[in-house]
Write a protein that binds this DNA or RNA. Structure first.
Lengths: 345, 345
DNA sequence: TAGCCCCTGGACAACGTTGTCAGCTGCCGT
DNA sequence: ACGGCAGCTGACAACGTTGTCCAGGGGCTA
């Protein structure tokens, strides 16, 4: 009776529980649970009474308690570098779609390319007992994840490999893509080609640099160190790097941009130059076909990266227990014009 | 003793609990809790023993249990239309940053512009007992949220107003921005101006249409119905709508595109035409300045929308209890060329 | 008609944490 | 030397749900 009263005149901020619903419907606690979960074994009449009580009280099941009891959270964590980067938009959406298809929610965090923040986020997600993690790593040592993985948190790394642990990984073929991009420029007559990329500690960045060097070496071309500018993707840095390699004693006639941020800035810089400079960028981007010249790119399929990673993750959650896999997705050169300009200078 | 054994030789998938840690460190449960939460009143020596046990067992606090006990989840939900839309990237990042500053995690979901899915997501988040919600509504009736709000779930609507309930709302000035855009075209000599926008049931879309009509009316210009094409933002639909209004008996000399998706398709369509057609788009987008002609836009600050909304949300969570607010952020016309073309035809 | 089984419903424990409260130790002041 | 006090520590209940198990009643079969 005091329960009923409590259930009826609740104060702000307190929610009705199954106990309240049961009291109001005049049934047992477990019967309410059965109705809420659509379990069999409840008379239509009883079910109706319970439903009415639920509606009247505005009851909503407390998933925290449910999770505590069941051990599974039906949620996965996604840690990426920056939600606002257009490269990660399609990736997160793909992960979300797969999660949704498996009835899981997505918890999202940005590491801002800071290893400490990545770890903090990942561990916060583990404390929430997410069933699995999709991580675009910022750091290069993920041993801190070992106890979590041992405890059953499925983990998949995307876009960059895990550091010092063995785990499922989905990558784009950065090396091959970069090599193809630079070979393309060489095939169009370029001999002095510049590379502007991301920080070399980032795996994709160093792979792309390696691809650049491999293509140059395969063609027997020397690489002057002033042509190679790994570093931040901040526009000012990229602008300065481009200016340096375009103006030196042996100026480049073509640029290979290591990711979409760099490409966009490179387009702006080249636009201001009197002479045409060829450009191939890693990563496709919207409107690449609309600027003039249209931008030749090495496209990687961000959505496919996300889908594949999430697929691997749920495969693990379904109990598959074979050794960690490493999937490498191919890239695709899309020639649009900027990469086919003849060398000038 | 059996506890200790259980704690030491755990099977895969079972995690150590505070009880295990306590047994191993030879202390009480509550002492472990105190150490884990950094509470005062623990001898350095005891704390060290507990820390060692924690490390040895790989213990991580179970936040589900903590949440159940404490009632607060330190997480907020964000429901938007599509994570992959470049408009929402900066918005979600801004929300995430504010959440992070308040020590909260972000749970993320896409409604795909489907009211049923929006409701499903929102209620799933409420079941998780998120402390608050930031919602970009897809539906136009949010009375289903009333019990949640009454129960204390702080809720802020962004980009579009809530339907049939009173809640904090943060909007861009769609009407004013659209009117300014169209007035800008009129000022540059256009008399026949087309409007291609999103589904009219979407608030921003109908507001922008209203702004279009207001600007035309203010200039004393008639609007032929064939110039007005609200509907899906799918490229084919936009393409067909543009073709129709550019080829009819009284073809338009300028287009006003109701959002960034439409603008991008419009750029592609106009590019194929022999004669120049002026264009102003709602929403700024990366590279708008790099196509030729550069695209004149009405810019709205997506990040600021997100920041403002999250700010309002945490204000509520901090206990502020004044009546719901409606914040309207100004837009800004950025003239780049495409909107200043003279009428032809 | 008797006996059995199935169907429905409820009591109770457990999930892992935190808040409350009480007990214990050792030290201080007188 | 004794009361008291302060500082640590631990036992216990509670958070809201689900799984297990048992009880009772009604229908069906022999």
């Amino acid at each position: 009776m005091s329960d009923t009263a409590q259930g009826t005149s609740r104060r702000y901020g307190t929610r009705p529980t199954m106990k309240d619903v049961a009291a109001r419907a005049g049934v047992g606690l477990k019967t309410v649970s059965r109705v809420v979960n659509g379990e069999a074994g409840v008379t239509p009449d009883t079910e109706r009474r319970v439903q009415e009580a639920i509606t009247a009280l505005g009851f909503r099941r407390n998933d925290s308690a449910r999770i505590l009891r069941k051990g599974r959270t039906a949620s996965i964590g996604l840690v990426l570098e920056d939600l606002a980067d257009p490269f990660y938009g399609p990736l997160s959406r793909a992960v979300e779609e797969v999660a949704r298809a498996h009835g899981a929610l997505l918890i999202n965090g940005s590491s801002a390319e800071d290893p400490a923040r990545e770890q903090e986020l990942v561990l916060a997600l583990c404390a929430r007992r997410v069933d699995g993690l999709v991580v675009i790593p910022a750091g290069d040592d993920h041993r801190y994840l070992e106890p979590e993985i041992a405890a059953g948190v499925a983990t998949v790394f995307v876009d960059r490999p895990a550091g010092r642990i063995d785990a499922d990984t989905v990558l784009s073929d950065s090396f091959g893509g970069a090599r193809e991009a630079v070979a393309h420029l060489i095939a169009h007559g370029h001999r002095r080609i510049g590379f502007i990329g991301d920080q070399p500690r980032i795996h994709t960045a160093s792979e792309r640099l390696r691809g650049y060097r491999a293509a140059m070496a395969a063609a027997g071309l020397p690489v002057e160190e002033s042509w190679v500018a790994p570093g931040s993707t901040a526009p000012e840095r990229v602008r300065a790097a481009a200016a340096a390699m375009l103006e030196g004693p042996s100026p480049v006639t073509a640029l290979f941009a290591g990711n979409n941020r760099v490409t966009v800035t490179a387009v702006r810089v080249l636009r201001e130059l009197p002479r045409p400079v060829a450009l191939v960028g890693f990563d496709d981007f919207e409107l690449a076909d609309l600027v003039r010249p249209a931008i030749t790119v090495v496209a990687q399929d961000a959505a496919q990266l996300g889908r594949t990673a999430a697929g691997l993750l749920f495969r693990r959650l379904d109990g598959v227990d074979d050794p960690p896999r490493r999937v490498e997705l191919p890239t695709r050169l899309i020639a649009r014009g900027s990469g086919e300009l003849a060398p000038v200078g």
